[in-house]
């Protein structure tokens, strides 16, 4: 089934009051950020999208696919899953090398993707190179995150990608989002990070279990996002130099002038 868009229909907040935002549209090739304090219901919103809620979760929301209530089969049939949900856990149980891990995933998905394409993408997203013969359990946090983002972008053929607070250090955040949208995914990302929130096309504000506002990223926010990306790349580079044992003297922040 070709998914062009998802629509989240508002439910209720934690006190049972109707949710202020009645409708949230998620289109392919766009990034939607979800912001709000801890406990405000960000993960619950992602979960509603993942299970294609039909008024049967705690929030009472419904999720439409291409404007219609999807068939029941789409929710429980493991061969028709639409959503890849990258959660905070980046620990791997797999006792194997990166190449073996990716090969196993490619084989399980039954696609003809080259595992080395995934690795190439992953290496664009992290400053610490990942080698195919590294062991999965020895990857750093940044390497794991880069590999998982590359994995859902390149291997999975799921149209929807949900990312729950994975922005922490060691990965080129905006490039990770660019990579996912270039594969024409619907991307929804829970974040506290301005680099990501301002790179998104819209952001949904959560409070007390409800979507309270949809903010479309303004022109000046987009400009700000570009500067933040530079700062972010600069930090990532410094991080790698420190890791390599360099002395860091006379650092100059990147030029942050607006056009």
């Amino acid at each position: 089934m070709e998914v062009k868009k998802l629509t989240v229909l508002g439910g209720r907040d934690k006190d049972g009051n109707p949710e202020p935002v009645r409708e949230l549209e998620l289109k392919r090739g766009t990034v939607t950020a979800v912001v709000g304090p801890t406990g405000s219901g960000k993960s619950a919103l992602l979960r509603d999208i993942e299970v294609l809620a039909r008024g049967d979760t705690v929030t009472g929301r419904k999720v439409l696919v291409n404007g219609e209530l999807p068939p029941e089969d789409l929710r429980f049939n493991p061969r028709r899953r639409l959503v890849a949900h990258v959660t905070q856990t980046m620990g791997f149980l797999a006792d194997c090398t990166v190449a073996e891990f990716l090969e196993a995933h490619v084989e399980a998905e039954g696609t003809d993707v080259d595992p080395y394409d995934v690795l190439e993408v992953a290496n664009r997203l992290t400053g610490e190179p990942i080698h195919p013969d590294m062991h999965m359990t020895e990857l750093s946090g940044g390497q794991s995150r880069a590999l998982m983002v590359a994995d859902v972008a390149v291997i999975g053929d799921r149209p929807v990608v949900l990312l729950d607070e994975i922005e922490n250090a060691g990965i080129k955040k905006h490039e990770a989002l660019d990579e996912l949208t270039s594969h024409d995914k619907i991307v929804v990302v829970v974040t506290h990070d301005p680099v990501i929130a301002l790179r998104a096309d819209v952001r949904v504000v959560m409070r007390n279990g409800a979507m309270t506002e949809i903010i479309r990223t303004s022109r000046s926010e987009r400009e700000a996002a570009k500067l933040l990306e530079k700062v972010d790349d600069w930090l990532l580079e410094l991080r790698e130099r420190v890791r390599e044992g360099e002395r860091i003297e006379g650092v100059e922040p990147p030029e942050v002038t607006t056009a």
Partner: peptide
């Protein structure tokens, strides 16, 4: 217990179940 493993590992596991 999907909270203890990565997305890719959950995927492979589900494929093996099917």
């Amino acid at each position: 217990k999907g909270d203890l493993v990565s997305q890719a590992e959950r995927d492979v596991f589900i494929k093996k179940i099917t």
